[in-house]
Design a protein around this nucleic acid. Sequence first.
DNA 1: GATTTTAGTAAATATATTTTTACTAAAATA
DNA 2: TATTTTAGTAAAAATATATTTACTAAAATC
Lengths: 143, 143
Amino acid sequence: MKEKLAKEYIALIPVLFENFKNLNKNEVKLTHLQNHVVEFMYMKKRDLNIKEISNGLNIAKQQLTNVISELENEGYLIKMPDPRDKRAVLVSLTSKGKSIQEEKWRGIYSNFHTNLAKLNVEEQIDLQFALHKLNVLLKKMEG
Amino acid sequence: MKEKLAKEYIALIPVLFENFKNLNKNEVKLTHLQNHVVEFMYMKKRDLNIKEISNGLNIAKQQLTNVISELENEGYLIKMPDPRDKRAVLVSLTSKGKSIQEEKWRGIYSNFHTNLAKLNVEEQIDLQFALHKLNVLLKKMEG
DNA sequence: GATTTTAGTAAATATATTTTTACTAAAATA
DNA sequence: TATTTTAGTAAAAATATATTTACTAAAATC
């Protein structure tokens, strides 16, 4: 059974991939790395220090110095001293930074709504149930 | 209900994101774009011409000339004339190109197997059912 | 058949990303 | 307390990516 399970899991990826392919065709003039950082921070939903971003994105911390100071200059995030470690710096998305991401999600969201119409009511109920189950179980698997 | 449904859908993304974060820490010495192209071709599971890759990845076709000829030099793909359009060129992943991707999926796969142990049998059955439902329904929504 | 569009290539220039090395100051450890 | 490790910055050099312009040949359209 585990074989079949893993196959279903892996089959899910290209399906979702297709859905998100247009996600980063955003208008805002950020470079790839800048966008990557903002996206990562938005996903994490909390302030992060540079090391955490560096680890999370597999980018050398030296690169982040410039990327983040540029984002700060443009008002997408702010830096502040980490009260728990005087060496470290906490990076926090501003509402301008968050709004870039929210704009992207609005697109996904509305697309999802549109496509939902292709399912009948029974299927919609099944979909909700499946999504919920999946979220709960995948989180359990990670934790 | 649609609200709740969309929320579950969107909540799924960060969960999966976490799972795939290490996917591109691969050893192979490809540049980002090169990796992107190989990944895209692998997902599509068929030969593509340069225009299709350009559209699919939102990359100017001029950029692809170099990226693809480099990949060809390294043996990850081959180019051949498109029999249906003498202007066009079909790009096809070699087994060397495919094996890079397969290596990545093996990592995901084995990670999934490991984490599956955190679920009891009943939960595993639920997971399989949810994954299957989701694949079927999402595909229906796209099509 | 003439004209326009399309697929791909080419090359130059401008930006962005990566890597290497080195430094400071605070934290952790011995 | 002395030593080592860690978080962040800085700057130069090497690569990679993006943009612009222009060209060829085949396809599509008029």
